[in-house]
Computed example of a mutant assay.
Amino acid sequence: MSYLKTVVLLFCVVFSALSVAGDGHDAAPSSGAKDMPGAKGVFAFQPSDWMEGKKTWWKDSDGVAPGVAGCHIGTDENGTPNGRMFGEACMEDGFLVESNPGKDVLHSHANDTGHPDKFDCNAWCVGSGNSSGMCTIAAAAPCEQSAKCVCK
């Protein structure tokens, strides 16, 4: 009986892991990040003033640049700023939330949901020839707060 319980438990654990891995919330790194060290992939992100069901337009101030604090600036479909914005951030696990695509590229977010990249700053810094690194809060006007990878 113990053997059967172990097999059933193992099946449940594997099935749960596969279900979570395939839920569509995480994906491969963006085209701008795919060849960069420390790139962990994109994930769904909704700004604090999320507008459900709306197609929104944005420009990124720094492109995919983990060593630069960036600001994601809301615009209309012609690129005129509309007052919405959010900075990059350090996640609870220490990864950097790095907005994309390229610098000043006008792009849309379906359902007001973006897909920024996650970066392991230590891996990015080591892969860039430094001894270590970490995610740190930084300024990136016009955003009140942003973040970047700082290398040692």
Rank of each mutant, 00 (worst) to 15 (best):
S16L: 15
G87T: 03
V97N: 09
K34Q: 14
S128W: 03
D117G: 08
R84V: 00
F45V: 01
S146K: 10
D104T: 08
G127Q: 11
Q46C: 00
K5T: 05
Q46V: 03
N111M: 03
H72T: 05
L9R: 09
F95S: 15
S146Q: 05
V42P: 01
P81T: 04
C149R: 02
N78Q: 12
M134L: 07
H115N: 12
E52W: 01
A69R: 09
M1S: 12
G133A: 08
A28D: 13
T113Y: 08
T56F: 04
E98S: 11
G83W: 10
E52P: 04
A28K: 15
K148Y: 04
C143H: 06
N111G: 06
C149M: 06
H115K: 14
N122L: 00
V64G: 02
H72F: 08
E92I: 11
K54M: 12
C151I: 00
E144Y: 05
L18Q: 13
G79A: 08
A69E: 06
L10E: 03
S48A: 14
C151K: 00
E144A: 14
S146E: 07
G24R: 13
Q145M: 14
V150K: 07
D60I: 01
L106T: 10
K59Q: 09
A123C: 05
G22N: 15
V20E: 10
D60E: 11
D76P: 07
G83D: 07
P29K: 04
H115P: 00
N78P: 02
S131R: 05
D93K: 09
W57F: 07
T75F: 10
S146M: 06
A28I: 10
A17Q: 11
M1C: 06
H109T: 05
G41I: 01
W58E: 02
